[in-house]
Design a protein around this nucleic acid. Sequence first.
DNA 1: ACAATCCACTAAAACCATTTAGGAAGCCTG
DNA 2: CAGGCTTCCTAAATGGTTTTAGTGGATTGT
Lengths: 359, 359
Amino acid sequence: MSEKVKKRTLILDIANHLEVSIATVSLVLNGKAKQSRISDAVAQRVLAYVNEVGYKPNHIAKSLRTGKTHVIGLVVEDISNPFFATVAWMIERQAFERGYRIIYCSTDNNPEKARELLTMFHERHVDGYIIVPSEGIEEEVTNILREHTPTVLFDRFLPNLPTNYVIVDGAQGTYQATLHLLAQGFSRVAFVTTDSVQTQMEARLDGYTKALAEQAMAPKVRRLAVTKDTEKVIADIQEFLQANPEIDALIFSTNYLSIYGLEAIARLKMRIPDDVAVISYDDHDLFRLYTPAITVIAQPIESIARNVIDILLDELKHPHAKDTSLPQQILLQTELVVRQSSIRKKAKTTVVRKKTLHS
Amino acid sequence: MSEKVKKRTLILDIANHLEVSIATVSLVLNGKAKQSRISDAVAQRVLAYVNEVGYKPNHIAKSLRTGKTHVIGLVVEDISNPFFATVAWMIERQAFERGYRIIYCSTDNNPEKARELLTMFHERHVDGYIIVPSEGIEEEVTNILREHTPTVLFDRFLPNLPTNYVIVDGAQGTYQATLHLLAQGFSRVAFVTTDSVQTQMEARLDGYTKALAEQAMAPKVRRLAVTKDTEKVIADIQEFLQANPEIDALIFSTNYLSIYGLEAIARLKMRIPDDVAVISYDDHDLFRLYTPAITVIAQPIESIARNVIDILLDELKHPHAKDTSLPQQILLQTELVVRQSSIRKKAKTTVVRKKTLHS
DNA sequence: ACAATCCACTAAAACCATTTAGGAAGCCTG
DNA sequence: CAGGCTTCCTAAATGGTTTTAGTGGATTGT
């Protein structure tokens, strides 16, 4: 009956016990003892007792009063993609240490869902946003900017919006990869990408075409519709390879396209790199372990995470007056990690044997 | 100067505009119009206007008042592990549809961190917990149970605590896998696992030893210290294989151990399954695509997620009186997905060739 | 015709903290 | 000794909602 309900300790309990006011306790707890001229003696007493009973202010009440939630909303394309998962994880780590929590969701590149998530974050009063923008969410992002909520985009950006962002120089990456393939003696290098027109994808394509253009070679590009239907994508790649037998090297513009590509190549019983060389944009566990190991254009994941979180936390700490400060826009470099899949075996001989194989 | 600050609409604004009380608006919005005998006419007016101006109640104020945050805390071992990532993602999806948000963090199997996360979730007033318990957090979980916050464990459980949980019959899985290897003619089957004594790991080991015991065969087990140092783990496996050349088949107790194992096997220039057959507990993209494809004991990921979220949401909806209801404890079955890595090629002949290779 | 019941709402407390304006007490100063 | 300064704290407003207890007037019952 007289169930003794162990109530959470409140700031009022602290104040009552110490026979001071609520305000005093709160001020001490928020480090404003000095500026509010609370005597050291009282401050010490408060701290000691708070510590003793392990009182923690109610976060929700605090948020309601201050308008700060200490939560950052993170919107990525697909959290199960190792690239995003790793960046997210690093961001979470950093943020955690500085007292911020991350709440993350995937858009699956669906603008509808992206919009939903953004409004949900807004409703939840997140203090800041980290966004991998899918197409068609300019309006929502504009709204966020208008409210001056700190925001950083990464992986890609929205060309018409003056936002902070951290991106990777994909053009340079694919340019370098293409030259590498040509230097290895592959002469028919094709590029497989998605039908997305997002900035990062266009850049990757540009690097490839630029490299070929410099050699006065014609590009061979296949744009695939991104779809949930794995089999469809694999079949498309198979079809592309069969329709263009002259291709002797492939660059895939994302890690998951590469994985489908490897499957397609395996099904066609083609061999890497003898029948076709392969380079993937963006690394993956699989590529290190695959036989042969797959050459990749690696993105500086750690650096991306660090830059994103630094910019965001900086803005959270120093709320910049409206438009006085320009957005920070950072471009990071890729690294070509050469593995067996793009190395021509034993020079000329191999070429001969390869021709034999084909006949 | 007279910067027009667009204030968020409040329930008070709605009430003023419609010339009704705040209470009326709130009751209508919370579907309590009928039971509070608000006339349909008024209810309609409220709804219409709320819709028109797109008013959304302030979540934080709501939480403060009701004590409900509609947030579920999800603690996994490692969110970058595809198994956990996939389960998390499915749970998130389901929860989202039913109005709950997930906030997740990884413990990296570090009890210290697990405790930190749990108290953080507690401070944030999550409505429910989903936990992959690492060792040594019985006390924290007990605290949670005492407060009657709905909680579900998965992947493993805490034997002494009467909690809900959803686990997989790992013993059955490894038992079946071992028999499969024996049936294929492999006679020296070893088992590589971690030094963890968590329930799920012990079960997997038990299945293996039981299968061998039934054949009156001696088990060969290697327990590896789980460490961040990838190279160390790979080296350990190499060493194990070299020290025990008679081994002709390996079962790894987790997907990441298998990945290290594949690397070790590759470095020793051993061939799968000719020199050693391989089965992994838990599937991974890599295993489908690896050459040869790796046989796995697959966990019913979708079913795990569904059961977890169903149990949790059910408890959230019907707050069970203290201890009237027994915890729900669910055991799901694995599926052996046979791929090339555990299939003996061309019967006897292969054995002979293998011996030659070894000499 | 007077009490009891309904009806359709509303006033105000509660949730738990932060923060500002100001107040009491003691000391100094001229 | 009145007025001004400090020093150290506190009362009360504030944030935005939910929910309980009630209210005033109309209707019904006897």
